[in-house]
Design a binder for these strands. Structure first.
Length: 645
RNA sequence: GCCAACGUAGCUCAGCGGUAGAGCACUUCCUUGGUAAGGAAGAGGUCGUGGGUUCAAUCCCCAUCGUAGGCUCCA
């Protein structure tokens, strides 16, 4: 029998008999590796670990540590889930069952309108583990399209038949483990025995092929692990994430609230949240003054005509809050969903010269958008929110420079607030569906290449998404992850050649002719609501000192020292240090506990010792007693800490 | 908007076909206590809302609003 040459990732070349499997390769390296190998990358393609290799190849063995290994594991788990469901509920139809970032899902349709509930999870989990223990091999088999069609026709699974329609004869494979056979490209792990821990997370409705007009299937989300310990760790992690949830912390720290009477998705900012928000605004205002922005203020409503001009009415009119009418004349006004049309009118309020460009108009503008009820989520997805908006009107030759300056500003914001894990998403239009967008091809191409170039020059870590642009231009969005690993868009920079056109904005060039300016929309925070939500989760409610609603708490040991405590508090207030004096009739332990729970950065404890020596005892949140200090030294230290802001 | 789930005191939650309970918070009193919860008493709810079934509904059914999970959408 002839041998083949296998090249491993470290460059070593080993010889094996033709038809060797990746498992056998692993075995030849070590028994331990053999037990852990889930799949293998053969010449860049992911293969089953038990698939024979017939020719010389580069082989990389994949284990749980590799993303591809995990994905294979989870995708195989999806088949196991399906097998379990089929054995419990025969005649179930199956949609698709892919691996996702953590775990996998399977879209299913249970027979005769049977509905699943959370109570059924345990039975399914038990069945899965039972089937896993049989160590059934995942067996790959090539089938002809006709055979595949007749298999699923007989089974009555119209979803698989629909999937088959899109597949080419000769490239169709089935995988079978135990009693379950599925249409699948693979690859899979060697056998079900690798799956040791199973947890069905939740269920949801999901439209078949993501199409609202199609039938809604039941989607089961689940996660599996090769060791029970890992499942436990994962569940602990989820618990930790829940503790950071901004909705929970927002309530506990009294930052914001919602009221059914006011309306869903309309946040009410409580005093502490307002303080925090105002600090953020102040910080950005200062930075914007330095960067040459000019403040403006515009009303919360605008004539419908304004949005007809801007194109927003055509694009979003029917999905917006509907116009409000004046009682006498029946004039129509929209709650403003955007600040840009208003800002365009400010630009247009007088003739502009090329010498005054770029003109940067900034406004913390509150906008209202109708979001579908199912989409509302804490502060991250609301119906009324305030953008730290600005529009830069500039000459075409200034675009790149201005765009770069905006990126610098966004990065300053992220840096000041400790966001290090972000990606920049370049959102371009969908080249397949150009009619969704306004404007000329030529402008789009110019705008898109400008963004790609400048992002590269600034050294941003980028991903490019087609079809994610605004209808008027491409965007550069800054994405960060929240405590639960969900991605949120914060800062955004958008290039726009359309609005200046629609509003017929002009400036007089050095040639004494009228020219059209280019517009850049930008918001470093995105919206204050979402930003504060993500920030809250990011720092688990332990806000940076300069932002904390209460920076200090003065805690007298007993009533006898209230007067001294009051004098301390007054001096701190005069030094612009925010905080409160805890004069409750409680023991000092209690006051400390309450202040710790409220995540107050500094606790200043005053009693007999302190009053006599004219000092304070400093306790830092989460760090315990820091010892005595004079008030002057404390204030100096404090001001040093918040200096850059 | 759609799918399945939930809605009980300010908060976190228990309960159940016979008109409600705990802990914390709150009020009052006692206590004046040195680095994460001192003690006692009290007050607080038409069980989200509107219908229906029933002798009787917080509990069962329907609708509606809201919340959390997902799908679709997102200027």
């Amino acid at each position: 029998m002839s041998n083949i040459k296998i090249t491993l990732p470290d460059g070593t070349i080993r010889e094996y008999p033709k038809g060797t499997t990746s498992i056998q390769i692993a075995q030849s390296i070590s028994e331990g590796l053999m037990r852990n190998v889930l799949a293998a990358k053969v010449n860049g393609e992911i293969w089953d670990a038990n698939r024979p290799i017939e020719n010389d190849a580069n082989v990389q063995l994949l284990t749980w540590k590799d993303t591809e290994g995990k994905n294979t594991f989870w995708h195989s788990s999806a088949h196991l889930l399906a097998e379990a469901i089929e054995s419990i509920y025969p005649k179930t139809k199956f949609g698709i069952g892919p691996a996702i970032e953590t775990g996998f899902y399977y879209d299913i349709e249970l027979p005769e309108g049977k509905m699943l509930s959370q109570d059924d999870f345990i039975e399914i989990e038990k069945k899965m583990l039972e089937l896993a223990r049989t160590k059934s091999e995942y067996i790959r088999k090539s089938v002809s399209k006709n055979d595949a069609i007749s298999y699923f026709t007989e089974k009555g699974d119209n979803y698989k038949l629909e999937l088959l329609e899109g597949l080419e004869d000769g490239k169709i494979t089935f995988y079978t483990q135990g009693n379950f056979t599925d249409l699948c490209r693979g690859p899979h792990i060697p056998n079900t025995g690798f799956i040791k821990a199973v947890k069905i997370m939740n269920l949801a409705g999901a439209y078949w092929r993501g199409d609202v007009t199609r039938k809604q299937l039941t989607r089961l989300y689940a996660v599996t692990f090769p060791q029970d310990k890992e499942l436990k760790e994962y569940l602990v992690l989820l618990e930790e994430a829940k503790k950071r949830d901004h909705r929970k912390l927002g309530k506990e720290l009294e930052l914001f609230t919602f009221s059914e009477k006011v309306g869903a998705g309309l946040p009410l900012w409580l005093p502490k949240g307002t303080l925090l928000r105002e600090r953020l605004e102040q910080f950005l205002r200062k930075a914007q003054v330095k960067a040459g922005y000019l403040p403006v203020i515009t009303p919360h409503i605008g004539s419908k005509k304004l949005y007809i001009t801007s194109g927003h009415w055509e694009k979003y009119g029917k999905d917006s809050f509907q116009p409000i009418h004046t009682p006498e004349e029946g004039e129509e006004f929209m709650l403003k969903p955007m600040n840009c049309p208003h800002h365009c009118e400010i630009y247009a309020s007088k003739p502009r010269s090329y010498k005054e460009l770029p003109l940067r108009l900034a406004e913390f503008g509150t906008v209202y958008r109708y979001e579908q009820s199912g989409e509302l989520h804490g502060l991250t997805r609301v119906r009324g929110f305030t953008q730290d908006d600005a529009h830069i009107f500039c000459r075409p030759d200034q675009v790149k420079d201005e765009f770069g300056k905006v990126i610098d500003l966004v990065l300053l914001v992220f840096k000041s607030l400790g966001f290090e894990d972000y990606t920049a998403q370049i959102s371009l239009r969908d080249p397949e569906n150009k009619t969704k967008y306004f404007g000329e091809d030529e402008d789009w191409e110019k705008a898109e290449s400008a963004i790609v170039e400048i992002a590269k020059e600034k050294g941003l870590r980028t991903v490019t998404e087609l079809g994610e642009s605004a209808f008027y231009g491409p965007k550069l969005d800054f994405m960060v992850k929240d405590a639960l690993g969900r991605k949120w868009q914060l800062g955004t920079v958008q290039l726009d050649y359309q609005l200046p056109d629609r509003f017929k904005l002009e400036y007089v060039g050095s040639d004494n002719k009228q020219h059209r300016p280019v517009m850049i929309h930008r918001a470093p925070f995105g919206s204050l609501e979402r930003f504060i939500a993500v920030l809250t989760e990011h720092c688990a409610g332990n806000f940076p000192l300069w932002l904390a609603p209460d920076q200090i708490a003065v805690l007298p040991v007993s009533e006898k020292y209230h007067e001294y405590a009051k004098s301390i508090h007054t001096i701190l207030e005069e030094a612009d240090i925010r905080g409160f004096l805890d004069e409750r009739d409680e023991k000092i332990q209690r006051k400390i506990r309450d202040a710790e729970v409220k995540k107050i950065p500094f606790m200043l404890i005053v009693g007999e010792k302190e009053e006599e020596s004219n000092t304070i005892s400093v306790r830092e949140h989460g760090q315990g007693d820091k010892g005595a200090s004079s008030l002057e030294d404390f204030i100096k230290m404090f001001q040093e800490k918040i200096k850059i802001h």
